[in-house]
């Protein structure tokens, strides 16, 4: 059972599983995005009308996509998702970079424990960590109580149910994803390069900008992608921490499906997200992986 048959048998189960439960669903999403909505169960009409007199008749429509283009809500939600996820990614970088740097330069014996402390929250429930912020951010919450007590503000601030709360929640939830890849690149860095820079009269801050920062670029890119990608399509954080006017594309898809029961439009939103969001990310990822494979292959020879 060597050779072809063996390989075939090894590859078959995951191939079939993914084709059935990952690929086929998207074909169905595409199909339903072209269907007309209907009041029945399921709430859409078949693409082909079998009962028509002149045989089967095409009943598909592009109306759902037309609605996405015409109604400014969808475009606004798409742009706002990118904006919020972008700000959260930047905030993660600003908090995560010094933390990763400090861990990478800490005594070797401490590093694993310090790193574990960063990763630990990731292993506890995501939902619970988002929930924890509600008690802190709400108008009569702890942050406002603290600020009032300190005399920084005279009246409680409305933070919960704003875009700011969503950004805080995202930064908090995804911070470990930024720190871990940053640490990996910073830890591998050759410190003699910094010594060389210092010997040549370079001040520490300038050496950081000229040596450390460029060398840690792969970590910055990897961490930013790990934060940005899930943040853009996020539903739970904007739903719990954002307000009714916090437009995010994941939330729009959810409410089209669950609140409006409009399966065709929800499907059209999903297809649009795939084309405008996931496809570019996958292309960038593939380009990066390809470049790294090449660089790695050369390095190994």
């Amino acid at each position: 059972m060597t050779g072809r048959l063996g390989r075939f048998l090894v590859g078959l189960p995951p191939y079939l599983w993914l084709a059935l439960f990952f690929l086929a669903p998207f074909a169905i999403v595409l199909k339903i995005s072209l269907s007309q909505p209907d009041a029945g169960i399921p709430p859409y009409l078949p693409l082909w009308d079998a009962a028509a007199e002149a045989g089967r008749q095409w009943r598909g429509t592009f109306d759902n996509y037309a609605r996405l283009a015409e109604d400014g809500l969808y475009l606004a939600a798409y742009l706002n998702s990118i904006r919020i996820a972008g700000i959260a990614t930047l905030a993660c970088l600003l908090i995560g970079y010094p933390a990763a740097y400090a861990i990478a330069r800490a005594p070797t014996a401490w590093r694993n424990s310090l790193l574990l402390l960063v990763a630990l929250p990731f292993w506890t429930s995501f939902l619970i960590r988002v929930y924890a912020w509600i008690g802190i951010l709400k108008t009569e919450g702890l942050l406002n109580a603290l600020l009032l007590w300190l005399g920084v503000i005279a009246e409680p601030l409305q933070i919960l149910q704003t875009d700011l709360a969503v950004i805080i929640g995202m930064t908090y939830s995804y911070l470990p994803f930024m720190v871990l890849p940053l640490y990996a690149t910073l830890e591998k860095m050759d410190l003699s390069l910094l010594e060389a820079a210092a010997d040549l009269g370079c001040r520490p801050f300038k050496a950081f900008l000229a040596v450390t920062l460029p060398l840690s670029m792969p970590g910055i890119i990897a961490g930013s992608l790990l934060v940005f990608i899930p943040a853009v399509g996020e539903f739970v954080i904007p739903d719990l921490l954002g307000g009714t006017d916090t437009l995010m594309i994941g939330k729009i898809l959810w409410s089209e499906f669950f609140d409006n029961r409009d399966w065709p439009v929800a499907s059209a939103v999903a297809v649009a997200m795939l084309v405008l969001l996931v496809a570019p990310i996958m292309i960038v990822q593939n380009a990066r992986a390809g470049a790294e494979d090449k660089a790695g292959g050369k390095g190994r020879r």
Partner: peptide, 22 residues
């Protein structure tokens, strides 16, 4: 095959959930 294996990593959860339910 490689595409199907890596795609779920970057796929928003709302899309995966919707697609599987449909």
């Amino acid at each position: 095959f490689a595409g199907m294996v890596t795609a779920p990593l970057v796929m928003p959860e709302v899309i995966v959930g919707l697609a599987l339910l449909l």
